[in-house]
Amino acid sequence: MIKNISLALVTLIASTHALALESLITVESHYSAKETADRFESIIKDKGFTVFARIDHQKNAAGVNLTLRPTEVIVFGNPNIGTQLMQCNQLAAIDLPQKALISEDADNKVWLSYNNPQYLKQRHNIAGCDKVMNKIAAALNTLSIAATSKPL
């Protein structure tokens, strides 16, 4: 009995961890963290998105005599798309505007991460809004790939 409970607990922890990993989509960048953030900001502005904030956590850490690898968050949105998501479920507003995290890991690899729209759909029990969810997913994918990939 205890063996079955232990196995069930390990399975639950493993599946919970897997779900947590799937809540973010992360793309490796071929550029430095600063260049990736600059590229992402430029691309989203060119596409008509509003940049509400760009937060440089490394700079803020240095301001209190702490060190942090490059870590920036860009807060951005498009009311035409975001409003449609909030019309599906107004609670989605807690996750809007969208955010992109650009960070450098301990191996000096740079990553661009954002919330998986499917995670937001599940989190807010959004039903009947697949068209807008697919539009958001496609836009975020296109923007992140454009900011992180080298031209062919």
Rank of each mutant, 00 (worst) to 15 (best):
Thr71Ser: 13
Val73Ile: 15
Leu24Ala: 09
Thr83Ala: 10
Val51Arg: 11
Asp95Lys: 04
Pro97Glu: 01
Val75Asn: 07
Val27Gly: 00
Tyr119Asn: 09
Val51Pro: 06
Leu24Thr: 14
Pro97Gly: 12
Gln58Lys: 15
Trp111Met: 00
His30Ala: 14
Gln118Leu: 14
Asn125Thr: 12
Ala37Gln: 10
Asn115Val: 02
Lys131Gly: 04
Gln98Lys: 05
Pro70Trp: 04
Pro117His: 06
Glu28Thr: 12
Lys135Val: 06
Thr26Gln: 15
Asp105Ala: 12
Phe40His: 03
Asn89Glu: 12
Asn125Val: 10
Cys88Val: 11
His57Cys: 00
Gly63Met: 06
Phe52Ser: 07
Asn60Ser: 08
Arg39Asn: 14
Ala100Gly: 03
Asp56Arg: 07
Ile81Asn: 05
Ile25Tyr: 03
Ile81Ala: 07
Ala127Leu: 14
Asp130Phe: 10
Gly82Ser: 05
Ala92Glu: 00
Glu72Asn: 12
Ala127Gln: 14
Asp38Val: 06
Arg123Glu: 02
Ile94Cys: 03
Asp107Leu: 14
Lys59Pro: 00
Ile43His: 09
Val51Leu: 11
Lys121Gly: 06
Ala106Asp: 07
Leu96Tyr: 04
Ser42Glu: 14
Asn108Phe: 07
Tyr114Trp: 03
Ala93Thr: 06
Val75Pro: 02
Leu112His: 11
Leu68Pro: 10
Lys109Pro: 01
Gly48Leu: 11
Pro79Asn: 08
Ala127Arg: 15
Ser23Asp: 08
Lys47Cys: 02
Glu72Val: 10
Ala100Pro: 01
Gln90Tyr: 13
Asn115Asp: 07
Gln90Asp: 07
Lys99Arg: 15
Arg54Cys: 05
Tyr114Glu: 00
Thr83Ile: 03
His124Phe: 14
Ile55Val: 13
Asp38Leu: 09
Asp46Tyr: 04
Asn125Tyr: 11
